[in-house]
Write a protein that binds this DNA or RNA. Sequence first.
DNA 1: TGGTCTTTTCAAGATCTTCTGAGCGAGACT
DNA 2: AGTCTCGCTCAGAAGATCTTGAAAAGACCA
Lengths: 228, 228
Amino acid sequence: MIRILVVDDEPYLADLVATALRYEGFETAIAGTGAAAVSLAETFGPDLIVLDVMLPDVLGTEVCHRIRATGSEVPVVFLTALDATEDKIGGLTVGGDDYVTKPFSLEELIARIRAVLRRTQRASTESGRVTFADLVIEEDAYEVWRGGRRVDLTPTEFKLLRFLAANAGKVVSKRQILDYVWEYDFGGNDGVVQTYISYLRRKVDAFPPPLIHTVPRVGYVLRLPRED
Amino acid sequence: MIRILVVDDEPYLADLVATALRYEGFETAIAGTGAAAVSLAETFGPDLIVLDVMLPDVLGTEVCHRIRATGSEVPVVFLTALDATEDKIGGLTVGGDDYVTKPFSLEELIARIRAVLRRTQRASTESGRVTFADLVIEEDAYEVWRGGRRVDLTPTEFKLLRFLAANAGKVVSKRQILDYVWEYDFGGNDGVVQTYISYLRRKVDAFPPPLIHTVPRVGYVLRLPRED
DNA sequence: TGGTCTTTTCAAGATCTTCTGAGCGAGACT
DNA sequence: AGTCTCGCTCAGAAGATCTTGAAAAGACCA
């Protein structure tokens, strides 16, 4: 099982991320300080580290360097504040590493983690492509195809569809969608989910058969229509 | 797998370079001193060495001599400060060697490394040419052709286009571009990327079909226009 | 040193995305 | 039938981003 170490000094956030990752089938550990992170990197032996740049004791970049100094080549996904992108994280996206700015959506973070794992674990057969029926989602190219025809989506539409596709056949509630696809501190109501489902239907389900279905009072699901 | 030894006393920089090289598919080792470099050159058996000229214990040139004295003919790419004059490095680039001045961009360093490997490893099938649709990029000649017509590019424009071409079909973010194409200590914002994309479009996409596409809020991608 | 080419910043206007709120229709319940 | 709830869609405002031109700053070369 793939192991992921989550490093963040904000317990709520670390827990949120770790829980989501466990749900995705990863094994997780949590560190609240840079020192703990360096220690756990050795004892826990993670396949990937989610690392906050702003830690109480040491900078995340320094933590990364200390871990690398032990000979470890574990890839890192950094979490950074939006305003830190300017000067502090130069060169972070180099190599197998990546970064996500706070606040992020869990959907986005998990997609990035999978992308990094895909790149570093070459043996992994997973490509950057998700397919369902005649729907094709190309992660790297940010492109979606339906029945050989290209569908043009905005970033939020893309993330929503990717989430639905990842849970194809499973009904997901509006609350779940909001929690995963929107940023974790999003304050709005879930009317926006309806709106985006509507947008997706117009673009993705422009031609039959429809793939996006409503389950009243429960949520939405991506599946082939059942023949009643 | 091709092995590269990175020698630099600045841990951050050595790590940055090594990480980028690993991502490019090379196997890497790091040495922080000249003594360690000489030692690793024998035990690690690299196919190429990235060697800082200014080391705490010995000059890089001396390190090179000592390694060559063991009978090794491993090619070297030197890293030198910008103010190092021609006479200091003039004799360095004998044979298959090359040099890059600090601060460099990873894009440039990797391109030089590939060029040196191409020259020394005759078996390597990779040519110094990248093509995409009717776009041809001659790495060695620093020349670009679009539909048989020669396009005149400045160095930065060339590096940006080469990076886009290397990731053809994949969307790259402005930050990724900044990290790879600009020098590692570049402090500016990513507005400059927009400007250079604009320059490239004017020169490279002067005739249809356009190859450089914007994916709003995500990044840029080199690809053929979609057929609607 | 002066002239030329390159790089970078800045700003206006155009474009695209996101989110909210209201209107509408379907079905359930009284 | 009336009324209620729920879900779908649309229009538009607010906001973010992108493009391009112009000009300043810097590098390069004779």
